[in-house]
Design a protein around this nucleic acid. Sequence first.
DNA 1: TATTGTTATACTCTATAACTATA
DNA 2: TATAGTTATAGAGTATAACAATA
Lengths: 159, 159
Amino acid sequence: MAADLLKDDLGWALGVTLRRYLGVVHEIVSDVPGGPRGFQVISSAAQDLATSQVMMAGHLGIDRSVLTYLIDDLEAAGLVERRLDPADRRNRRIVATEAGRELWCERRAAIARAEDDMLSVLGGDRSTFKDLLQRVALAADRLDPASDACQAVNGLVDS
Amino acid sequence: MAADLLKDDLGWALGVTLRRYLGVVHEIVSDVPGGPRGFQVISSAAQDLATSQVMMAGHLGIDRSVLTYLIDDLEAAGLVERRLDPADRRNRRIVATEAGRELWCERRAAIARAEDDMLSVLGGDRSTFKDLLQRVALAADRLDPASDACQAVNGLVDS
DNA sequence: TATTGTTATACTCTATAACTATA
DNA sequence: TATAGTTATAGAGTATAACAATA
């Protein structure tokens, strides 16, 4: 039984790694409505990454209807707020409250420590791995029809 | 709007990458019962990676009941077979049929090409990335309670 | 008594479509 | 007419628990 063969599989490796990552993060943000997904919404709001919910849903790779429920719970917990866009009153800009920003800073640090721990097997190659993965992810995101990243980087893509 | 900040996020990068990978593989194995998940079962069976269904479920990170349904469909399609283990008649060893092995070889090559395409942004760093990811995944798999990999590598872990 | 595999059930997550309000 | 957001519904995917067979 050669167990190494299946493990030499990109899909298997990505799945296991993401599963473990989500498990670790889930413990850190278990009290946050929506868990890791909800925390990503707070993270996006705290950094003002999206000017509308559809844009945020695109970035996060989830459906806009799912995002509505997540924001409902996060708003009820006082972590984010919906703000009307004066320029286009159809849009709702999601902003983190003071409590949301505090929580984001705390947990972000805890998650960073957990990440370092998870990648400790790589030793000095940790940053290399993160850099390479980010390059793959950015390229994959541009090809994702659900993402509107094309708008943000159209200067690079259209050429 | 600094879109780079969210993207400097391991969870986001893993999620986007796995989503894209699964999307690509889904097209390649869209006619296989269970899609990418079903193909992984065939892959495991063709390489004889597990001596029982629970072991296979552990490797694949899915529940044993889910695996039952997957195998049902794959067996109906003539791609795998359940074989009784004479040594322990509770166990069912899953083996790939001739058709299953053929399909596995074909699609595996197609998936490898798609992987290469997906990682083309890395250029010469492709193999470095795969190596690093595999190291992370193997370490994560050892810490996964759902995996029985501890048995396979107990010589390395117990020390 | 513990474990493998199956089955039925329930639950969670996600997608779909219809609706409103704005543009 | 098209888009943002909401809502209700349906669907897929997954987990839970009870069961029979075997150890």
